[in-house]
Write a protein that binds this DNA or RNA. Structure first.
Length: 727
DNA sequence: ACCACCTGTTATTAT
DNA sequence: AACAGGTGGT
């Protein structure tokens, strides 16, 4: 049997992992050491050599992107699709199981998935029904509390409040929240996992069935598993523990949502037979980039210990640019990208990485100005847009009348004369009957108990939903969506808005029909959708995979994303922007003890995304939450070996304005500049008239300043030639 | 009940 | 800066 196609592309360590005899395996895989390759080749090995049917294998990842990549690469390696193999995210696979066994799981057949925003609305609703003040019980915190408990597999009854009245109250809200979800047939993200775990616990014959089937489990990014996910895997693996897990403790960046690095150690403790393989050769980056990354991560305590090395060339030093402000930062980055593209570089080989989504804006503006195609990942995504969620809510309510969250969302959207008073009556009745809002509204209408005008409006709404549901029957998915858009009055409503925003919304709604069409038609209905009716599958897809924000996937684009979103990806040219204390490491992480190391791991992740070039940048002033700040350079910059750094531009060359309240005191004066030019200085130019100095660059005879002229607009001028007169 | 406007609040990371 | 929620006029 020729297995060279599986083994030849592997190094010794990779081969050891791939060919390990049956039994638990933990692969500690450093960044760029071929982690995905090992997973994929392991699957191929099991199929090709161990004669395991793909049908008996389960592969779990954390993101849809990772799952899709694994599926694609496996298919490429095998030459055929690995039909029957379950590949998906924890959430996707759990969802699939719950759809198949909704009855045993205690869910209604048409249960709907709550995304984070939906969940917050439900929490608000519950807080109100308990008459708790939102100021004292911030919905966000309550939401975090609930999710954190669920991530630990703790139902309200099992939460240890230790007599703390504050926690007791939170538990009360948690319980009420659960009751609300149960009645409305709503399942949040954490619930998908926990409910599946309980499904197995409560139905041993079901568990036995899946254990029998999935003798081989592959897990990606094991360091990101939370308590429930660990239990989920352990339960499914059973005593044999045939888990092939790949992970890297240095890339654990999801602690804030319950991930536990300790699960790596726990696995080896609870399955003592676990074979540990270390992948330490990096194939991705230059040795310079690797040295830089290793130096930074070395500041962390208690690592499991790996030393990444490469046989690659040293390459270029890392570049560091200190920008005047975020616009200057973006300008520099985009300038660098332009040069890269001019020299024949591919735009899609470039990534601009940052700590928080809000930072994308300055880069987007600069990229648009330079007409460079780009794509932003994250942020507000397609299925998270308000108009899309409105439309989906119509579909969801048509599918499940008890879905209170959807009911609340659209009962008066578009406005149809159902106001707060009417709604209050419906809620009150629902509480009284312990029923859904839909049921309560029905009763009120039937009894004619509300004012006739309100009752008519309410009745109109109920009939509208019923009409949508009945007209949808038998139609292909995209026509169902199209039909609902029309019948709901949503399309009309948004069309009436002739503003820019309104037009965009109409476009999005139309795009939703297209999305439905391609979802159903492309023949690649996600496998977890099998056996589901297309609408249910589409709605689940919308909740579980929010879709990309924008960008034309057809053309090569510069990639903009957060550091978190970049994990698992690699690029020839990587920008790490906003390297500032308070931004990265983030302020909120600095305020809580013990969270700095995760930020540092995030920095490690960022650096190791780069193959050839890494450019770091920070701004000396930055508008943050509407206010001007004067941040200090990130500590991570000081943790980099300075000999690996090349500072692109010497620091201050033109006098800076005095900073407020001692934020920064070094007001340097540039040698060789005529007069006292400084930022904010009013100047006069012989041709352009008067203006204000906005920005500066370079030094000596090359110094340039940006001046915003009252009539001529903003211009960059070489100070030596411009003849500027301070006014 | 609806809409436009104002005011106060709040700011990561994401399945 | 952005947004949710509240206020006041229609």
């Amino acid at each position: 049997m020729d297995v060279s196609y599986i083994l030849d592309p592997l190094n010794d360590a990779q081969r050891e992992a791939v060919t390990a005899p049956p039994g638990p395996v933990l692969v500690l895989a450093g960044a760029g050491s071929g982690k995905t390759r090992v997973l994929v080749h392991r699957a191929a090995w099991l199929i090709g050599v161990e004669r395991v049917s793909p049908w008996g294998m389960l592969a779990v990842t954390f993101t849809n992107k990772a799952a899709a990549e694994m599926r694609g690469r496996l298919q490429e390696l095998l030459g055929v699709p690995a039909a029957g193999m379950w590949i998906g995210t924890f959430h996707g696979l759990s969802h699939r199981l719950l759809r198949a066994h909704w009855r045993e799981a205690g869910l209604p057949e048409a249960f709907q998935i709550l995304d984070a925003e939906d969940q917050q609305r439900v929490v608000r609703r519950v807080l109100r029904s308990l008459e708790l003040d939102e100021a004292r019980w911030p919905p966000k915190e309550v939401q975090r509390f609930i999710n954190a408990r669920k991530d630990e597999a703790l139902r309200p009854a099992r939460v240890d409040h230790r007599g703390d009245p504050y926690v007791q109250q939170l538990v009360r809200v948690y319980r009420a929240y659960e009751e609300h979800c149960a009645r409305a047939g709503l399942v949040d993200f954490a619930e998908l996992l926990l409910r599946t775990l309980e499904l197995w616990h409560g139905h041993p014959q079901l568990l036995a069935h899946y254990r029998e089937r999935f003798r081989h489990i592959l897990v990606d990014e094991f360091q990101d598993t939370n308590a429930v996910q660990y239990d989920w895997l352990k339960l499914l693996a059973g005593h044999s523990g045939q888990v092939f897990a790949v992970g890297d403790d240095d890339q654990s960046i999801y602690g804030w949502r319950g991930a536990r690095v300790e699960n790596l150690k726990r696995l080896t403790d609870e399955f003592p037979a676990t074979r540990i393989v270390r992948l330490e050769q990096n194939y991705r980056s230059t040795s310079t980039i690797l040295r830089a990354a290793n130096a930074v991560i070395a500041y962390n305590q208690g690592r499991m210990g790996k030393s990444l090395w490469t046989a690659g060339e040293p390459g270029e030093p890392l570049e560091l640019y200190s920008a005047f402000n975020e616009q200057d930062e973006a300008r520099y980055v985009v300038g660098r990208i332009s040069a890269w593209i001019e020299h024949g570089g591919a735009p899609n080989e470039v990534a601009v990485l940052y700590r928080s989504n809000a930072q994308s804006r300055a880069f987007e503006e600069a990229l648009i100005m330079s007409a460079i195609p780009y794509r932003v990942y994250g942020g507000l995504r397609f299925f998270e847009r308000a108009e899309i969620k409105d439309a989906l809510a119509y579909l969801r309510l048509a599918a499940n009348r008890d879905d209170d969250a959807s009911f609340e969302r659209i009962v008066n959207q578009p406005a149809r004369g159902i106001g707060e008073r009417t709604l209050a009556a419906v809620r009150e009745r629902a509480r009284h009957e312990d029923s859904s809002l839909w049921h309560a509204a029905r009763l009120l209408v039937a009894e004619g108990a509300t004012a006739t005008r309100a009752a008519k409006a309410l009745q109109g709404f109920l009939e509208r939903i019923d009409r949508i549901a009945s007209r949808m029957r038998g139609l292909p998915l995209h026509e169902q969506v199209d039909q609902a858009l029309g019948e709901s009055g949503l399309l009309e409503h948004y069309k009436a808005d002739r503003s820019e925003k309104g037009r965009a919304r109409v476009e999005n709604l139309e795009e939703l029909v297209n999305a439905a069409q391609s979802f159903a038609h492309e023949g690649e209905l996600p496998p977890e959708a099998e056996g589901l009716d297309p609408l249910a599958a589409f709605l689940a897809h919308a909740a579980l995979e929010a879709g990309e924000a924008q960008g034309d996937p057809g053309q090569p684009c510069v990639q903009l994303m957060t550091l978190h979103a970049a994990k698992g990806l690699e690029f020839s040219l990587v920008f790490l922007c906003g390297m500032e204390e308070g931004l990265f490491p983030h302020q909120l992480a600095l305020e809580e003890s013990g969270r700095l190391e995760e930020e540092r791991r995030l920095c490690y992740v960022g650096l190791t995304r780069g193959r050839r070039h890494v450019v770091l940048s920070y701004a000396e002033r930055r508008r943050l939450h509407g206010a001007e700040t004067f941040p200090h350079p990130s500590r991570f910059l000081y943790e980099l070996p300075q000999e690996l750094l090349h500072e692109v531009r010497p620091r201050v060359t033109v006098a800076r304005p005095a900073s407020p309240a001692g934020a920064d005191t070094d007001v340097d004066h540039a040698p060789g500049l005529p007069g006292a030019l400084h930022l904010g200085q009013r100047v006069a130019h012989p041709k352009f008239g008067e203006g204000v100095v906005l920005n500066y660059e370079g030094k000596g005879s090359h110094a340039r300043v940006q001046v915003n002229f009252e009539h001529a607009g903003s211009k960059w001028l070489v100070v030596a030639y411009a003849n500027l007169e301070p006014v």
